[in-house]
């Protein structure tokens, strides 16, 4: 038996990754690092290149350019890789004519993982009672749980989940969120993708936003919200026209966002109050606008979404 690989402190490093499928550029000069001890959300519209990037990290697809390393080495040269990296890419990709336990058994055997781990992860994923049933009869949610059990089989330092929340019920979603948190808490590097920002909002520490194969943001959740909010100020007033005039004269960009609100960008809150007071424009409220994470995400990926709708390709 060789020594067990470390359970924490392993990173994923992606540098200058490029991948083209015939005429489509799936991944375009992508670079990022997934750090241990936190949940890194990998978000972008369908077809943005998330799955392709994950497949390249896992050695399933070859990059045209660039490198993807796990703990400093390409996945394809890892010995007993399940002890370092656990991944779930496609929960449906399991032979339907094999039982859940036997599926985990062959995986364990292939990486010299002790047989008792099979029962441990079956328990962990809440599948102990259906372990002997053929996977063909499993719901999507049960298959997701089986895929996650398989990913955790080798007690890996790096965990990669592609859209793990798809098909789960509320209980399953809560389960996976707390699982992701606890995996990161144990010092593992956790990379989890979603096409919906809201799924990762409360779970991810760090975000990689991708669109059309390019990295749009590599930032913490807090920073992203701050950036997207800009220095916009919302003014509630009955005198919209007058407010618009005053603010425009001061060189700010003002727009009427609804019946009572004018949104101003380019001026700090104090300055806005000062100007309105000077010109005698009555207002009932002034507040710094705060974007939701969802808005920030929409802003970042708008172009990529349009592309996705026109030439959508699951990627």
């Amino acid at each position: 038996m060789t020594e067990s690989p470390p359970r924490s402190g392993v990173t994923i490093e992606v540098r200058g990754l490029r991948k083209r499928y015939r005429s489509t550029v799936a991944v375009d000069d992508l670079s990022f690092t997934v750090e241990p001890g936190m949940v890194t959300g990998f978000v972008g519209p369908n077809g943005a290149g998330k799955s392709t990037t994950m497949r390249i990290i896992l050695g399933l697809d070859a990059a045209d350019e660039g490198s993807a390393l796990v703990g400093g080495r390409p996945y394809r040269v890892l010995d007993r890789p399940l002890r370092t990296v656990g991944a779930l890419l496609d929960a449906a990709a399991v032979h339907p004519g094999r039982s859940a336990r036997n599926h985990l058994l062959w995986l364990a055997q292939s990486n010299a993982i002790p047989r008792r781990r099979v029962d441990e992860v079956l328990d962990l994923a809440g599948l102990a009672t259906v372990a002997k049933r053929n996977v063909g009869g499993f719901s999507l949610g049960m298959r997701q749980r089986l895929g996650i059990a398989a990913a955790l089989l080798g007690d890996p330092a790096v965990v990669i989940f592609d859209e793990p929340i798809n098909g789960l019920d509320i209980e399953g979603i809560q389960w996976i969120r707390s699982l992701l948190r606890s995996l990161a808490g144990e010092g593992r590097a956790v990379l989890v993708s979603s096409h919906l920002m809201s799924e990762l909002e409360d779970t991810a520490d760090h975000l990689l936003v991708i669109g059309r194969g390019r990295l749009l943001a590599d930032t913490s959740v807090r920073e992203l919200v701050t950036t997207a909010s800009g220095d916009r100020v919302a003014v509630r007033t009955g005198m919209r026209t007058e407010a618009m005039t005053t603010l425009a004269n001061a060189g700010a960009l003002a727009t009427i966002t609804d019946g009572e609100t004018v949104t101003v960008s380019g001026l700090p809150v104090e300055h806005v109050i000062e100007l309105l007071t000077r010109d005698g424009v009555a207002f009932t409220g002034v507040s710094a606008h705060r974007a939701s994470l969802e808005e920030a995400y929409m802003e970042l990926t708008r172009d990529a979404v349009e592309f996705g709708a026109a030439a959508g390709r699951e990627g």
């Binding site: 497949r55 896992l58 399991v94 995986l107």
Partner: peptide, 18 residues
Amino acid sequence: SEEYGTRSIGVSLMAVPR
């Protein structure tokens, strides 16, 4: 061919990447 038919080839190659 079953590995491709069920798409489990990905899982197999993740377990045995060489």
